[in-house]
Amino acid sequence: MKALDKANLDKFVELLSEEFNVYSITDTDFSTDFDNNKALEILKPIKSAKEIVFPQTEPLFKFDLVGKEIVVNEKQNSTNLMLWIKPCDVRGINILKKVFEKDVKDVYFANKLNNTIFVGLACNNPSRNCFCTSVSITPYYKEGMDVFATSVNGAIIFEALTEKGKEVLEKVNSLLRDATKDEVEKAKEIHLQAENKVRRYNFNTSRLTWDSDVWRISEICLSCGICTYLCPTCHCFDIIDENYVYEGERIRIWDSCMYSEYTLQASGHNPRAYRLQRLRNRIMHKFVWFKEMFDEYACTGCGRCVSYCPVNISLIEILGGV
Protein backbone atom coordinates (compact mmCIF):
# COMPACT_ATOMS: atom_id res chain seq x y z
CA MET A 1 0.00 0.00 0.00
CA LYS A 2 1.36 3.38 -1.05
CA ALA A 3 0.18 6.82 -0.13
CA LEU A 4 0.21 10.21 -1.82
CA ASP A 5 -0.13 13.48 0.06
CA LYS A 6 -2.83 15.61 -1.52
CA ALA A 7 -0.39 18.54 -1.63
CA ASN A 8 1.46 16.63 -4.36
CA LEU A 9 -1.65 16.05 -6.43
CA ASP A 10 -0.77 18.52 -9.18
CA LYS A 11 2.67 16.98 -9.61
CA PHE A 12 1.14 13.52 -9.61
CA VAL A 13 -1.22 14.34 -12.48
CA GLU A 14 1.55 16.14 -14.34
CA LEU A 15 3.81 13.13 -14.11
CA LEU A 16 1.10 10.82 -15.38
CA SER A 17 0.24 13.17 -18.26
CA GLU A 18 3.75 12.77 -19.61
CA GLU A 19 3.05 9.16 -20.43
CA PHE A 20 -0.70 8.78 -20.76
CA ASN A 21 -3.77 10.65 -21.95
CA VAL A 22 -5.17 11.32 -18.53
CA TYR A 23 -8.95 11.48 -18.37
CA SER A 24 -10.72 12.44 -15.21
CA ILE A 25 -14.07 13.46 -13.86
CA THR A 26 -15.65 16.80 -14.72
CA ASP A 27 -19.24 17.78 -14.10
CA THR A 28 -20.47 16.46 -17.44
CA ASP A 29 -18.11 13.72 -18.53
CA PHE A 30 -14.68 12.16 -18.47
CA SER A 31 -12.36 14.67 -20.04
CA THR A 32 -8.68 15.45 -20.43
CA ASP A 33 -9.43 18.99 -19.34
CA PHE A 34 -10.23 18.70 -15.65
CA ASP A 35 -9.62 20.42 -12.34
CA ASN A 36 -7.29 18.31 -10.19
CA ASN A 37 -8.88 19.06 -6.85
CA LYS A 38 -12.44 19.18 -8.04
CA ALA A 39 -12.14 15.82 -9.80
CA LEU A 40 -11.59 14.18 -6.44
CA GLU A 41 -14.72 15.72 -4.97
CA ILE A 42 -17.26 15.11 -7.74
CA LEU A 43 -19.18 11.91 -7.15
CA LYS A 44 -19.74 11.00 -10.78
CA PRO A 45 -20.12 12.88 -14.03
CA ILE A 46 -23.42 13.04 -15.87
CA LYS A 47 -22.18 10.84 -18.69
CA SER A 48 -20.85 7.44 -17.77
CA ALA A 49 -17.35 6.17 -18.48
CA LYS A 50 -18.47 3.86 -21.28
CA GLU A 51 -17.79 6.48 -23.92
CA ILE A 52 -14.05 6.07 -23.41
CA VAL A 53 -14.10 2.45 -24.56
CA PHE A 54 -17.30 2.63 -26.60
CA PRO A 55 -17.62 6.17 -28.01
CA GLN A 56 -20.96 7.56 -29.04
CA THR A 57 -19.75 8.08 -32.61
CA GLU A 58 -16.98 5.77 -33.71
CA PRO A 59 -15.67 5.95 -37.29
CA LEU A 60 -14.88 2.46 -38.57
CA PHE A 61 -13.54 3.13 -42.05
CA LYS A 62 -13.62 5.61 -44.91
CA PHE A 63 -14.25 5.10 -48.61
CA ASP A 64 -14.52 7.31 -51.66
CA LEU A 65 -16.23 7.39 -54.99
CA VAL A 66 -13.14 7.49 -57.17
CA GLY A 67 -10.65 5.01 -55.83
CA LYS A 68 -11.16 1.42 -54.87
CA GLU A 69 -9.44 1.62 -51.53
CA ILE A 70 -10.99 1.48 -48.13
CA VAL A 71 -9.13 3.29 -45.39
CA VAL A 72 -9.60 1.51 -42.10
CA ASN A 73 -9.36 3.81 -39.14
CA GLU A 74 -6.03 3.47 -37.42
CA LYS A 75 -5.78 1.62 -34.17
CA GLN A 76 -5.15 3.73 -31.19
CA ASN A 77 -1.59 3.43 -29.91
CA SER A 78 -1.46 5.89 -27.04
CA THR A 79 -2.69 4.78 -23.67
CA ASN A 80 -5.60 6.35 -21.82
CA LEU A 81 -5.60 6.57 -18.07
CA MET A 82 -8.92 7.00 -16.32
CA LEU A 83 -8.25 8.78 -13.09
CA TRP A 84 -10.63 8.46 -10.13
CA ILE A 85 -13.18 6.36 -11.99
CA LYS A 86 -15.87 5.14 -9.59
CA PRO A 87 -16.67 1.47 -8.91
CA CYS A 88 -20.07 1.67 -10.61
CA ASP A 89 -18.55 2.94 -13.85
CA VAL A 90 -15.88 0.23 -13.84
CA ARG A 91 -18.56 -2.33 -13.22
CA GLY A 92 -20.35 -0.96 -16.28
CA ILE A 93 -17.27 -1.53 -18.38
CA ASN A 94 -16.95 -5.08 -17.02
CA ILE A 95 -20.47 -5.76 -18.17
CA LEU A 96 -19.83 -4.25 -21.60
CA LYS A 97 -16.79 -6.50 -21.84
CA LYS A 98 -18.96 -9.57 -21.38
CA VAL A 99 -21.24 -8.49 -24.18
CA PHE A 100 -18.57 -7.41 -26.62
CA GLU A 101 -16.41 -10.46 -26.03
CA LYS A 102 -19.09 -13.11 -26.18
CA ASP A 103 -18.70 -15.40 -29.21
CA VAL A 104 -17.00 -12.87 -31.47
CA LYS A 105 -14.52 -10.42 -30.05
CA ASP A 106 -15.23 -6.83 -31.03
CA VAL A 107 -11.87 -5.52 -32.18
CA TYR A 108 -12.71 -1.85 -31.81
CA PHE A 109 -13.83 -2.31 -28.23
CA ALA A 110 -10.98 -4.64 -27.34
CA ASN A 111 -8.39 -2.25 -28.73
CA LYS A 112 -9.72 0.63 -26.71
CA LEU A 113 -10.01 -1.46 -23.57
CA ASN A 114 -6.46 -2.79 -23.87
CA ASN A 115 -5.21 0.75 -24.17
CA THR A 116 -6.96 1.98 -21.07
CA ILE A 117 -5.75 1.91 -17.50
CA PHE A 118 -8.27 2.35 -14.72
CA VAL A 119 -7.23 4.15 -11.57
CA GLY A 120 -10.32 3.78 -9.46
CA LEU A 121 -11.35 5.70 -6.41
CA ALA A 122 -13.48 4.30 -3.61
CA CYS A 123 -16.75 6.14 -3.39
CA ASN A 124 -17.18 7.85 -0.05
CA ASN A 125 -20.26 9.96 -0.45
CA PRO A 126 -22.99 8.10 -2.32
CA SER A 127 -25.98 10.18 -3.38
CA ARG A 128 -29.68 9.87 -2.73
CA ASN A 129 -30.28 7.82 -5.87
CA CYS A 130 -27.38 5.38 -5.56
CA PHE A 131 -28.28 1.74 -5.06
CA CYS A 132 -25.15 -0.21 -5.93
CA THR A 133 -25.32 -2.52 -2.91
CA SER A 134 -28.69 -3.79 -4.14
CA VAL A 135 -27.21 -5.04 -7.40
CA SER A 136 -24.37 -6.92 -5.73
CA ILE A 137 -21.51 -4.45 -5.89
CA THR A 138 -20.14 -2.16 -3.21
CA PRO A 139 -18.67 1.37 -3.10
CA TYR A 140 -15.25 -0.31 -2.92
CA TYR A 141 -15.71 -2.83 -5.72
CA LYS A 142 -12.29 -3.45 -7.30
CA GLU A 143 -12.77 -5.88 -10.19
CA GLY A 144 -11.56 -4.51 -13.50
CA MET A 145 -9.46 -1.74 -11.96
CA ASP A 146 -5.70 -1.57 -12.30
CA VAL A 147 -5.10 0.65 -9.32
CA PHE A 148 -7.51 1.12 -6.50
CA ALA A 149 -7.35 4.32 -4.46
CA THR A 150 -9.05 5.60 -1.34
CA SER A 151 -9.10 9.20 -0.28
CA VAL A 152 -8.22 9.45 3.41
CA ASN A 153 -8.15 12.93 4.94
CA GLY A 154 -4.99 14.56 3.55
CA ALA A 155 -3.76 11.58 1.56
CA ILE A 156 -4.72 9.11 -1.12
CA ILE A 157 -3.91 5.46 -0.58
CA PHE A 158 -3.08 3.31 -3.60
CA GLU A 159 -3.27 -0.40 -4.07
CA ALA A 160 -1.98 -1.90 -7.31
CA LEU A 161 -4.17 -4.74 -8.52
CA THR A 162 -2.61 -5.71 -11.86
CA GLU A 163 0.74 -5.61 -13.62
CA LYS A 164 -0.36 -2.50 -15.50
CA GLY A 165 -1.25 -0.90 -12.22
CA LYS A 166 2.13 -1.67 -10.71
CA GLU A 167 3.80 -0.02 -13.67
CA VAL A 168 1.72 3.11 -13.21
CA LEU A 169 2.67 3.36 -9.55
CA GLU A 170 6.29 2.77 -10.50
CA LYS A 171 6.13 5.87 -12.71
CA VAL A 172 5.08 8.12 -9.86
CA ASN A 173 7.12 6.35 -7.24
CA SER A 174 9.08 9.50 -6.38
CA LEU A 175 5.97 11.16 -5.01
CA LEU A 176 4.69 8.19 -3.04
CA ARG A 177 5.46 7.06 0.47
CA ASP A 178 4.41 3.97 2.37
CA ALA A 179 0.97 4.21 3.88
CA THR A 180 0.85 4.24 7.66
CA LYS A 181 -1.11 1.61 9.52
CA ASP A 182 -3.58 4.22 10.70
CA GLU A 183 -4.36 5.28 7.18
CA VAL A 184 -4.99 1.73 6.05
CA GLU A 185 -7.35 1.20 8.96
CA LYS A 186 -9.08 4.47 8.21
CA ALA A 187 -9.54 3.50 4.56
CA LYS A 188 -11.33 0.33 5.57
CA GLU A 189 -13.54 2.34 7.86
CA ILE A 190 -14.41 4.75 5.04
CA HIS A 191 -15.34 1.81 2.80
CA LEU A 192 -17.75 0.42 5.35
CA GLN A 193 -19.19 3.83 6.12
CA ALA A 194 -19.94 4.42 2.46
CA GLU A 195 -21.50 1.00 2.13
CA ASN A 196 -23.86 1.75 4.98
CA LYS A 197 -24.77 5.10 3.47
CA VAL A 198 -26.06 3.53 0.25
CA ARG A 199 -29.73 2.78 0.46
CA ARG A 200 -30.42 -0.92 0.22
CA TYR A 201 -33.47 -2.30 -1.51
CA ASN A 202 -34.81 -5.79 -1.84
CA PHE A 203 -35.43 -6.04 -5.52
CA ASN A 204 -38.09 -8.43 -6.59
CA THR A 205 -37.42 -9.31 -10.21
CA SER A 206 -40.09 -11.98 -10.25
CA ARG A 207 -42.66 -9.23 -10.58
CA LEU A 208 -41.23 -8.35 -13.99
CA THR A 209 -43.54 -10.47 -16.07
CA TRP A 210 -44.72 -9.85 -19.59
CA ASP A 211 -48.16 -8.53 -18.70
CA SER A 212 -47.42 -7.21 -15.25
CA ASP A 213 -49.06 -4.08 -13.88
CA VAL A 214 -45.74 -2.33 -13.30
CA TRP A 215 -45.53 -1.42 -16.99
CA ARG A 216 -48.37 1.02 -16.52
CA ILE A 217 -45.66 3.52 -15.55
CA SER A 218 -44.83 3.71 -19.25
CA GLU A 219 -47.90 5.93 -19.67
CA ILE A 220 -45.78 8.84 -18.53
CA CYS A 221 -42.55 7.83 -20.29
CA LEU A 222 -41.46 10.34 -22.91
CA SER A 223 -39.41 7.72 -24.79
CA CYS A 224 -36.38 9.98 -24.91
CA GLY A 225 -32.88 8.52 -24.85
CA ILE A 226 -31.62 9.92 -21.55
CA CYS A 227 -31.72 6.69 -19.54
CA THR A 228 -30.02 4.65 -22.26
CA TYR A 229 -27.39 7.19 -23.22
CA LEU A 230 -26.34 7.91 -19.64
CA CYS A 231 -26.46 4.26 -18.56
CA PRO A 232 -23.01 2.70 -18.06
CA THR A 233 -24.18 -0.69 -19.31
CA CYS A 234 -26.47 0.10 -22.27
CA HIS A 235 -24.65 -1.07 -25.35
CA CYS A 236 -27.00 -1.01 -28.34
CA PHE A 237 -25.48 0.48 -31.45
CA ASP A 238 -26.29 1.13 -35.04
CA ILE A 239 -23.88 0.99 -37.97
CA ILE A 240 -24.54 3.40 -40.80
CA ASP A 241 -22.82 4.87 -43.80
CA GLU A 242 -22.53 8.63 -43.78
CA ASN A 243 -22.32 9.80 -47.36
CA TYR A 244 -20.75 13.07 -48.37
CA VAL A 245 -20.47 14.21 -51.94
CA TYR A 246 -17.48 12.20 -53.14
CA GLU A 247 -16.67 10.18 -50.07
CA GLY A 248 -18.23 8.35 -47.23
CA GLU A 249 -17.61 6.95 -43.84
CA ARG A 250 -18.99 3.98 -42.00
CA ILE A 251 -19.64 4.86 -38.39
CA ARG A 252 -20.92 3.12 -35.33
CA ILE A 253 -23.22 5.18 -33.14
CA TRP A 254 -25.15 4.52 -29.98
CA ASP A 255 -28.76 3.64 -30.46
CA SER A 256 -31.50 3.71 -27.90
CA CYS A 257 -34.23 1.12 -27.45
CA MET A 258 -36.51 3.89 -26.25
CA TYR A 259 -36.86 5.35 -29.75
CA SER A 260 -39.67 4.03 -31.91
CA GLU A 261 -37.23 4.12 -34.81
CA TYR A 262 -35.13 1.46 -33.07
CA THR A 263 -37.17 -1.55 -34.16
CA LEU A 264 -38.83 -0.04 -37.21
CA GLN A 265 -38.60 -2.51 -40.08
CA ALA A 266 -38.21 -1.71 -43.75
CA SER A 267 -41.72 -2.96 -44.40
CA GLY A 268 -43.07 -0.26 -42.11
CA HIS A 269 -44.04 -2.71 -39.39
CA ASN A 270 -42.85 -1.85 -35.92
CA PRO A 271 -42.83 -4.66 -33.37
CA ARG A 272 -42.31 -2.20 -30.51
CA ALA A 273 -44.49 0.67 -31.58
CA TYR A 274 -45.66 1.63 -28.11
CA ARG A 275 -43.83 3.10 -25.16
CA LEU A 276 -45.02 0.28 -22.94
CA GLN A 277 -43.31 -2.30 -25.12
CA ARG A 278 -40.12 -0.31 -25.26
CA LEU A 279 -39.90 0.37 -21.54
CA ARG A 280 -40.66 -3.26 -20.82
CA ASN A 281 -37.96 -4.35 -23.20
CA ARG A 282 -35.37 -2.14 -21.54
CA ILE A 283 -36.07 -3.23 -17.99
CA MET A 284 -36.57 -6.90 -18.81
CA HIS A 285 -33.40 -6.97 -20.82
CA LYS A 286 -31.41 -5.62 -17.90
CA PHE A 287 -32.93 -7.68 -15.14
CA VAL A 288 -34.31 -10.85 -16.69
CA TRP A 289 -32.77 -11.77 -20.01
CA PHE A 290 -29.29 -10.55 -19.24
CA LYS A 291 -29.43 -12.48 -16.00
CA GLU A 292 -30.36 -15.64 -17.91
CA MET A 293 -27.40 -15.19 -20.23
CA PHE A 294 -24.63 -13.97 -17.93
CA ASP A 295 -26.03 -14.67 -14.48
CA GLU A 296 -25.92 -11.05 -13.31
CA TYR A 297 -27.93 -7.88 -13.67
CA ALA A 298 -26.95 -5.43 -16.39
CA CYS A 299 -27.18 -2.64 -13.86
CA THR A 300 -24.51 -1.05 -11.72
CA GLY A 301 -26.73 0.91 -9.38
CA CYS A 302 -25.24 4.26 -10.35
CA GLY A 303 -28.68 5.86 -10.26
CA ARG A 304 -28.19 8.05 -13.32
CA CYS A 305 -31.44 6.95 -14.93
CA VAL A 306 -33.26 7.77 -11.70
CA SER A 307 -31.64 11.18 -11.27
CA TYR A 308 -31.98 12.39 -14.83
CA CYS A 309 -35.32 10.95 -15.91
CA PRO A 310 -37.35 13.96 -17.05
CA VAL A 311 -40.56 12.58 -15.57
CA ASN A 312 -39.11 10.96 -12.48
CA ILE A 313 -39.66 7.33 -13.49
CA SER A 314 -37.68 5.38 -10.94
CA LEU A 315 -36.06 2.07 -11.70
CA ILE A 316 -36.10 1.36 -7.98
CA GLU A 317 -39.86 1.68 -7.92
CA ILE A 318 -40.31 -0.54 -10.96
CA LEU A 319 -38.23 -3.23 -9.27
CA GLY A 320 -40.37 -3.02 -6.16
CA GLY A 321 -37.70 -1.47 -3.98
CA VAL A 322 -39.99 1.01 -2.28
Binding site: L222, C224, I226, S256, Y259, P310
Partner: peptide
Amino acid sequence: EKCIRCYACRNV
Protein backbone atom coordinates in the same frame (compact mmCIF):
# COMPACT_ATOMS: atom_id res chain seq x y z
CA GLU B 1 -20.48 20.01 -28.17
CA LYS B 2 -21.99 18.68 -24.97
CA CYS B 3 -25.22 17.60 -26.63
CA ILE B 4 -25.71 13.83 -26.60
CA ARG B 5 -28.74 13.94 -28.90
CA CYS B 6 -31.00 12.02 -26.56
CA TYR B 7 -33.90 13.95 -28.13
CA ALA B 8 -35.44 14.56 -24.73
CA CYS B 9 -35.94 18.21 -25.69
CA ARG B 10 -37.91 17.12 -28.72
CA ASN B 11 -39.97 14.50 -26.94
CA VAL B 12 -40.84 16.64 -23.95
